[in-house]
Amino acid sequence: MPYLNIQTNQTLSDDYREKLLVESSKLVAEGLGKSEEFMMVSIKDDTPMLFGGKSGPTAFLEIKSVGIPANKTKDICQQLCELVHSVASIPPERIYVKFNDVQRSMWGWKGDMFG
């Protein structure tokens, strides 16, 4: 049930978009200790964005999941920033990563709730 949304002001080629989708899906699922079978990833590129009042390369990543272990967030953040930097050439200091731990009763799938 983890969901990762990647938003950036960079325009990604189809190959880079696919690489980012595949590699971030595996990375987040493993980092959270969840099955990749339930992992969802979306990318919104070419989005008008500023960081620090400047329009240079930037990205905002948001992870939503039930049961995010606080002791795993730092490693996941570091690995995601390295991945985005290697694929999209966005410096890690221009990337925010937000973690949202969602209550089971607030996450639905197949017309029912997990809680």
Rank of each mutant, 00 (worst) to 15 (best):
S65N: 07
S42G: 12
A88S: 10
F38L: 09
L61R: 00
G56H: 04
S42K: 08
M1A: 00
E82M: 08
N5S: 13
S105A: 11
M1P: 10
V87F: 02
G33Q: 11
M106E: 12
I90E: 02
L61H: 03
L4G: 05
G56F: 07
E23D: 15
E30I: 04
I43E: 04
E23I: 08
L83Q: 03
N71A: 11
K110H: 14
F38C: 05
G67D: 15
L20R: 00
I95Q: 03
W107M: 14
I43N: 08
Q7K: 15
I63Q: 04
D75W: 01
S13Q: 07
K72Y: 11
R94F: 01
F51M: 14
Q7T: 15
F60E: 03
K34W: 05
G67Y: 06
D15H: 10
R94P: 02
V41P: 01
S105W: 05
D15I: 12
K44H: 13
S25R: 10
L4H: 03
Q79N: 15
L12F: 08
G33M: 05
E82D: 13
P92I: 01
R104C: 03
E18V: 04
Q10K: 11
V28T: 08
Y96A: 12
T47Y: 10
L27I: 09
P48S: 08
I90F: 05
F60M: 12
K98E: 10
E62K: 09
A29D: 07
G56I: 06
P92Q: 07
F51V: 09
T11G: 07
Q78V: 09
R94V: 03
E18W: 00
M39Y: 02
V28I: 10
K64R: 14
F60L: 04
T58H: 04
S55D: 05
F114V: 08
T47S: 11
K72S: 13
L27Q: 01
Q79V: 02
E23W: 02
N71W: 03
K74A: 14
P69N: 13
F114S: 09
P92C: 02
Q103D: 13
K110S: 14
D15F: 08
R17Y: 10
I68G: 05
L50V: 13
S105P: 00
L21M: 12
D112H: 09
R94T: 01
S86P: 01
E18P: 00
K98T: 11
L12S: 06
S89H: 13
A88Y: 04
S86M: 06
M40E: 04
E23Q: 15
Q79M: 04
V66Q: 01
P69V: 07
Q7E: 13
V41S: 06
V41W: 00
L27T: 05
G111S: 14
D112L: 09
D75C: 01
E23L: 14
L4T: 10
G115E: 02
M49H: 03
R94D: 01
Y16D: 13
E62R: 06
L4F: 07
E30Y: 03
Y3K: 11
L50T: 13
L50H: 07
S13T: 15
H85M: 11
S24N: 07
G108N: 02
L50K: 08
V28C: 03
E37Q: 12
E62L: 08
Q103S: 14
K72V: 12
K44A: 15
E62P: 00
P57K: 11
